[in-house]
């Protein structure tokens, strides 16, 4: 039986993790200081979802991958220059905020609408992918909300592995407590999968793929519909960076025996 999938991957930008982030309060709620100046990355777990989607599409000819992103247009364009060189995909964009203090229910509402409006959407082949949590909100709320809006009843979170079975079923391994995986079998699409790290290394940049993607990316960015996320009913009273500096005692030039004894005493305390 030849199987093909329509894989929609949801993912957007997050600040470069090496940057120092400072919260500020604005009339519209909290934000990051100089948020629009910060260098950004493609959200890492969503990145794994995208690589897994491309891998799946490659194994099942006739499959299609569409990246759907809600983020500030200019920032999306920046990250697409790099992520767009990794794997082939089609692209649909929504121009709006992608920061950590946005409301995931509203983000999900906008994304679900964009997915439902994709031309030629075929639910019987539809897999919606994304990262299981963003590196911004870290909530793990968006994908289930999308599933509810699209009426999809099979949702998996913390996915590290997806296998397509000969009968068209899906075998999925999800992270559970204690460093274990739960393995489930789903009858087939439609399904929503929130990916953890998966099993694939980051693909090498391929300028040819980049050029092909850019032909679709630029017009999609130009067409990006502006989206407002008002954060209705949500009030932040404070956002603080914790006092994180400890008084580090640096032990240098001490004999190994002394260090070892001190560590053992500390472990046993």
């Amino acid at each position: 039986m030849s199987l093909s999938f329509q894989v929609v991957v949801c993912g957007s930008v997050v600040p470069d993790p090496l940057q120092t982030l400072e919260p500020v309060m604005t009339p519209a709620g909290p934000a990051l200081k100089n948020e629009l100046m910060l260098p950004v990355w493609f959200d890492p777990w969503a990145g794994h979802a995208l690589y897994e989607a491309a891998h799946l599409a490659k194994q099942h000819p006739g499959s299609k991958v569409t990246l759907v992103s809600l983020g500030p247009k200019a920032k999306l364009q920046q990250v697409l220059m790099t992520i767009g060189q990794k794997v082939p995909f089609e692209f649909a964009a929504l121009d709006g905020p992608a920061g950590g203090f946005t409301e995931p229910a509203e983000t999900a509402g906008a994304l679900a609408e964009a997915i439902a409006a994709l031309p030629g959407l075929d639910r019987s082949r539809l897999l919606v992918f994304g990262g299981w949590e963003s590196a911004a909100r870290g909530a793990g709320v968006t994908l289930q909300t999308i599933a509810e809006k699209l009426g999809i009843e099979d949702v998996f979170l913390g996915v590290d592995e997806l296998k397509v079975l000969p009968d068209g079923g899906l075998e999925i391994a999800e992270r559970i407590e204690g460093g274990r995986h739960q393995v489930s079998r789903c009858a087939g699409p439609p399904a929503v999968l929130g990916w953890a790290t998966g099993n694939l290394p980051e693909p090498k940049n391929n300028p040819q793929v980049g050029m092909m993607n850019m032909r679709a990316v630029m017009p999609a960015l130009q067409k990006a519909r502006p989206v407002k996320l008002p954060g209705e009913g949500l009030t932040f009273t404070a956002v603080n960076v914790p006092k994180q500096l400890r008084q580090t005692r640096i032990v240098k030039d001490a004999p190994v025996d002394e260090i070892a004894a001190e560590i053992v005493e500390w472990i046993r305390k």
């Binding site: 993790p17 982030l21 909100r137």
Partner: peptide
């Protein structure tokens, strides 16, 4: 928020 970098209430 932001992977344990800041705490919001």
């Amino acid at each position: 928020y932001y992977r344990q970098r800041m705490e919001g209430t």
